[in-house]
């Protein structure tokens, strides 16, 4: 146990002494966190749906929960069920085999709800194309989308900006 405590203590000091480039975006991250809290005044619950991505976007969405971005520290949580969610964060392209599952997930999310499409493929099918025998293309072809975040994949800071854009454009309450 003492090794863990020592490790915790060690790293708190280290991250406070982070060099410039990291601090710069940390300030931006904090600004966005405060903005989300100001707009919402409470927690935001996100349900992530992978509707056919290459998994690259998921890696960057995972990063939102690391100690640098600390999204959960701002009261924004990823939840296990759409029934608990205010916002769906959907990566694409939407494969035809995920079309029904995505629609059902949307229907299971209580209104008012927000949808953020993630990544070039979530926006318009990206490199996988707009429509084919196996792909529906962008998320908006299957469910209504409030905000689309471009990038392949979008960096975590862009994901945070996109989530903020969605909640400021149309607050859930």
């Amino acid at each position: 146990m003492w090794r863990i405590l020592r490790e915790v203590a060690r790293h708190r000091r280290v991250s406070e002494a982070l060099p410039e480039p990291a601090c710069e975006w940390q300030r931006e991250g904090q600004r966005i966190q405060h903005e989300i809290l100001r707009v919402l005044g409470r927690a935001l619950a996100i349900r992530e749906v992978d509707a056919g991505s290459c998994n690259g976007c998921e890696l960057e969405i995972h990063a939102l929960n690391n100690p640098y971005y600390n999204l959960e520290g701002a009261g924004i949580r990823f939840v296990a069920s759409p029934r608990h969610a205010d916002l769906l964060l959907v990566t694409g392209p939407v494969s035809r085999h995920m079309e029904t599952a995505l629609r059902r997930t949307y229907e299971a999310t209580p209104a008012p709800k927000l949808v953020v499409a993630v990544g070039d493929c979530g926006c318009d099918g990206g490199i996988f194309g707009e429509q084919s025998y196996a792909s529906c293309g962008g998320v908006a072809r299957v469910i209504p989308v409030d905000v689309a975040i471009t990038g392949c994949p979008p960096a975590p800071i862009d994901l945070m900006r996109g989530i903020l854009a969605a909640v400021t454009a149309r607050p859930p309450d």
Binding site: D50, G52, F128, G129, S132, Y133, A134, S135
Partner: peptide, 11 residues
């Protein structure tokens, strides 16, 4: 599996 089949090989 196969839910993510998006026609990569055809593409």
């Amino acid at each position: 599996l196969g839910y993510k089949h998006k026609g990569i090989e055809r593409r």
